[in-house]
Design a protein around this nucleic acid. Sequence first.
RNA 1: UGACCGAUGGUGUAAUGGUAGCACUGCAGAUUUUGGUUCUGCCUGUCCAGGUUCGAGUCCUGGUCGGUCAACCA
Length: 566
Amino acid sequence: MNKSTNKEPGDKESRSLNFIEHIIEEDIRNNKNEQRVHTRFPPEPNGYLHIGHAKSICLNFGLAEKYNGLCNLRFDDTNPLTESVEFVDSIKEDVRWLGFNWEERLYFASDYFEKFYEFAVFLIKKGKAYVCDLNTEQIAADRGTPTRPGNESPYRNRTPEENVDLFRRMREGEFKNGERVLRAKIDMASPNMHMRDPVMYRIIHAEHHRTGNKWCIYPTYDFAHGQSDSIEKITHSICTLEFEVHRPLYEWFIRELEIFPSRQIEFARLELNYTIMSKRKLMQLVDEGYVNGWDDPRMPTISGLRRRGYTPEAIRSFAERVGIAKRENVIDVALLEHTIREDLNKKATRLMAVTDPLKLVITNYPEGGSEELEAPLNPEDPDAGTRKFSFSRELYIERDDFMEEPPKKFFRLAPGREVRLKYAYIIKCVDVVKDSTGKITKIHCVYDPETRSGTPGSTRKVKSTIHWVSAPHAKPARFRLFDRLFRKEDPDDVEEGKDFKSSINPGSLRVVEGYITPGTDPLNPLDKFQFERLGYFCVDPVSTCDKPVFNRTVTLRDAWAKIKNR
RNA sequence: UGACCGAUGGUGUAAUGGUAGCACUGCAGAUUUUGGUUCUGCCUGUCCAGGUUCGAGUCCUGGUCGGUCAACCA
């Protein structure tokens, strides 16, 4: 039973389908493929997965789930030069982490190499493929242009017998790289460049990460992808728009091979503003040291987002909201940030931390004294319980929460002003201490002992409540404050002679030292917190008990920042 | 200058030929011991020109704009 036939009348949300779901439901109505829905996620293991892949993963696995079907994980590993097990492993980890399960259906195109070889021989014997001795440049030159037809290869009319023999010798390693290729015999005058006798096999004497040195000829994408789909009886082969022009070829091979007809459907890939999604460019950022690896929290990779503190739930929610369509689109990163705030608001334990400490002394509080206070672990979740922590005479507050000469809309602490210390007392600033350079080093306040949180005196209204950490109890911590990696909405929009790297935001990583309230041990990697009023943070894997390191996932929405920047 | 694909608020995405809806963003207000959350309200949209029809975002024709395609990458 699938959701779409289960709808309640008036349940508008589940009634709106994307265009792929429309196709699938029509196929089901028409009894196509015995109403089977079988998709696949087909990454090439030549890089790390990014948020754009997450969209595709959620689509493919999501569709299978929705229509009670299956989704395979298949590595499209037909190019030994660029692929590696490192990438295979990271991709598997990322898909699993996102919450999807391919069960026993983990496949590799390389597992089908023998089958592809047989397919090729079949086409050769049918007179639909031939071995061509032209080199890359000659083939390219003969292919023509989109507006001019190409020329037929002089080797085009070799006999099937000769072709079979030549192809066998290619496999046997008789020829050097690039010396010969196997081409489909289609139409050199086709308006579709991909139909102009495309290359099916090329000679690459290189070790493959799975098949080792067994092969020295490798199928191209066009002669591997659709064939793999067909072998796996994929019903809906979903890919991105740039493969649209390949579809006639995809269908040509299936028809000539007389194999199971998978259907290719294209959708628009995800683009995010202030972000690049090209694998090549991401690799450049890694290789040239602009970031600290594929899992740098500023990277749009799944591993980067994970280390940044994103949750699978947030990413899946994001993938759901961006929608599926055929028009090119650029999603606002604000939507991604919204989904992680939404998820973490429900889940994250609240704690107080100060990232830019300013000493505050409560002059009328007993010297050496302290007391214990209590606060909810998560106000959104009453069942989460409470935590206890200490208050004392000397505290740290956020430097931003004090201004000597406050502008009109500034509600926080200032000379002569009152604010509430969250979960503690109302205090009033009575003095400001500066060093010889004029920098504020300390502020003096008095507190009102009648206003302790939870007591009747605490109900007095003040303009603002600020967070703090008790200085003698404070635990030093490092905070990595991330900002967007690029300062331009479209990082590729650069002046002549420059590239996307000139759009990099020099301030994308700020590391600061501050304090957190103690009592949070043990801190496990990727544990998530909301530091009240600051944002959501997670524990970085390099963190130690002595020196916790937090990555800021995202700030809280900040009304004051907006006012301030006007 | 060819073929193919696409075009709905600022950004995305819906709407058997029948009231253009939803989300994000932005703005305004209410609530609030997080300038958070929550709640309420508001702004802004069918690329253009014709045609078919009682009725067009939807169908047809022509244009405009954008994208893709000339790797032995995927």
